[in-house]
Amino acid sequence: MFDQMVKLAALAFLPISLGCSYVEIPYPDTGRNSAKSYLIPRTMELWDLFNTTKYSIEAFPRGNGNRFGWLAPLNIFHFPPAYQPLKFPFEGMNEAGLTVSALYLAQSVYEQPQPGKPGFSALEFVPAILANCSTVDEVVATLESVTVLTPFIPGVPEEALKTATLHWAIADASGRSIVVEYLQGQRMIHENAPRVMTNDPDIKWHWRNLNTRVHLSPSYPYQNDMLQVKADDDVGVVPRPIGHGWNLVGLPGDTTSPSRFIRLFYLRGYAMEASPIKSFEDAVVLGTALLNNVFIPFGPVAADPRAGPSDGPEFTDYGVLKAPKERVYLIRGYRNTQWRKFDLKRLDFSKGYTWPLEDGSLGIQDATDSGESTPSQAGEL
């Protein structure tokens, strides 16, 4: 019974991941005329539950009923030493280039069990899909053949597990991208044309909310020049923009889900309008910049004191950049923000592997002694 209660405690705290962000960046596919590939930046936010939450990166082999090998960062919850750590993937890519990102959605209500129809819990969604599907079409077919259920542990009150609520962004190597949600017990699958996703509310609400920022502009704001008058000499002509950034006034800067969705959509769009993406490398640069914009440092996000020990100050535990077509997966931690690359085409998925998310360093390279000597004269700039 105590073992069940330990598992209950872990599962009950799993959804304290309210700040995850997801966006896709198109770039030219050099292997196909006029085709696009997509780079997918994504963050994971969670608070360090009782100083027990750790992370590893693990590769899972094909075989034993799994069609595909897959790579994922794992959230690891360490409870009393006598018990095995509980590991859960909320993110990953398989060797076919299929990617799944699970993000918290409080309003999720999963399906009910159906006699004769197999099912799995929402916490099994990521590994079940990555191990057995290669395309979005296969994911859709799989979800039609199963039921996705609220996590359940025998002897544990169902109410305690209702907060393990998620929705999923899924993309494949062809570039097709969908969002899967379970609302009021019904499966909803949407083609993710905006290619952005955060948390609550549901995805359609976020799409409509993009309309509330139509006043934003990629252009320098000269639209009020016809109102200009000459004021005192020390004031000059007013109104006029001074400095940069006035075209983005009204772009929300907080860490709420609606604000992050708005920021990722408009910043990505304006950046690509100003400097079109020409390569995978360009996409990585922009993807890194977008993740930096939604990066959450530890501390500023207030926890809910009424939630007791089930809430704490969340922060960006890790960020990823994943390229389904190339089967490339980049990941960085909170302390060491140096990207590390995993090439799934080269991984031997006949066996498993594990890597630490953080290596204990800050990833800083000392360049002091690597400079090239240049001739100079005194006083010369």
Rank of each mutant, 00 (worst) to 15 (best):
F2V: 10
D3C: 09
A10V: 14
A12K: 15
L18C: 03
E24M: 15
P26D: 12
R32E: 00
A35Q: 13
W47R: 04
K54F: 09
S56E: 01
G63A: 11
G63V: 09
G69C: 09
L71V: 08
P81I: 08
A82F: 07
Y83A: 14
Y83L: 06
G92L: 14
G97M: 12
T99S: 14
S101W: 01
Q114F: 04
G116D: 10
P118V: 11
G119T: 05
L123E: 07
V126N: 09
P127W: 06
I129A: 10
N132R: 05
D137T: 11
E144G: 11
E144F: 02
S145N: 10
V146A: 07
V146K: 09
V148H: 02
L149Y: 04
T150W: 07
I153E: 10
I153V: 15
P154R: 15
V156Y: 10
V156T: 15
P157I: 01
A160P: 06
T163I: 03
L166P: 02
V180M: 05
R187F: 00
D200L: 02
D202A: 07
D202V: 06
K204Q: 13
W205R: 02
N209C: 07
L210S: 12
L216C: 00
S217K: 08
P218Q: 04
S219A: 06
K230P: 02
A231M: 13
V238R: 09
R240N: 08
G250C: 06
L251Q: 07
T256P: 06
P258N: 01
S259D: 02
Y266V: 06
R268L: 10
E281F: 12
F298A: 10
G299T: 08
D304S: 04
P305W: 02
F315K: 04
T316R: 04
Y318I: 08
P324G: 01
E326H: 14
R327M: 03
R327S: 06
I331E: 06
D343I: 00
R346Q: 11
R346I: 03
R346F: 06
R346E: 13
L357I: 05
G363V: 05
I364Y: 04
Q365Y: 12
S376R: 08
Q377D: 08
Q377M: 11
